[in-house]
Design a protein around this nucleic acid. Sequence first.
DNA 1: CGAGCATGGTGAC
DNA 2: TCACCCTGCTCGA
Length: 268
Amino acid sequence: MPEGHILHRLADQLTTAFAGRRVAVSSPQGRFAAEALLLDGHTIDRARAVGKHLFVEFDDERVVHIHLGLIGRMTVEPPHPVVGQVRLRIATEAYVADLRGPQGCRLTGPAAEEAMIARLGPDPLDPQADPERAYDRLHRSHRPLAAVLLDQSVLAGVGNVYRAEVLFRQGLDPLLPADDLTPAQWSRLWADLVGLMAEGCRAGRIDTVRPEHTPEAMGRPPRVDDHGGEVYVYRRAGRPCLVCGTPVRRRELAGRNLYWCPTCQPER
DNA sequence: CGAGCATGGTGAC
DNA sequence: TCACCCTGCTCGA
């Protein structure tokens, strides 16, 4: 689940539910119990997301830094009993936020928060973000473009799905050396990410298929992706490209699955 | 019911 | 480049 759009959505949900409110904090599973005790009964200022990092800021200079990792999840819902392994629970009479399986959940402060953010590249979901900062890094790297897009110190918030999909939509070969990307290509890629991720944040899922390429528009039977959104190539290896019908390819790159259409994203 | 896998990242070598 | 972490889901026996 968690690419940048999910974390920004969570930050919004947490802020709406808890900003300015005293909250009960606990760790039913126990691994955050000592920290939870320190926070219990305190007031939350706001929650903030940068890239895939989530910061829950309390009114007394305490910050909970959360990183969901690959399998972590957080939900904000009406009150309900604890089910399964809950690392962190934040609750009022009206809302309960449950954190499960995070890669990291640490109690820190504003200085550590700023230091963490300083190590991240620009985030397409941040209206103040400066895409030039990312291009400066990107166009000096010989690594494949697909590898650089996942480097959070270059670009913050993009994960495996957005990587595959934005490269497809831009017709770019994933293995293109990053330093071959022109400023105009980067500009279009960034703008596309901004639009896709904003929509993903709003919808809570990743949809990347343009209206003219939906199965309905192409005169094909409707299909269902097994991860909640409509996409061109992510996890569609061996199935026909929605645009040209060529089987979608998959390979491993730096330990992550990479998907692309060899026809729509030709080498050059 | 166990194995394998996943939209991520770290630390050791 | 690899082992490993964390949880929950799916798939095959």
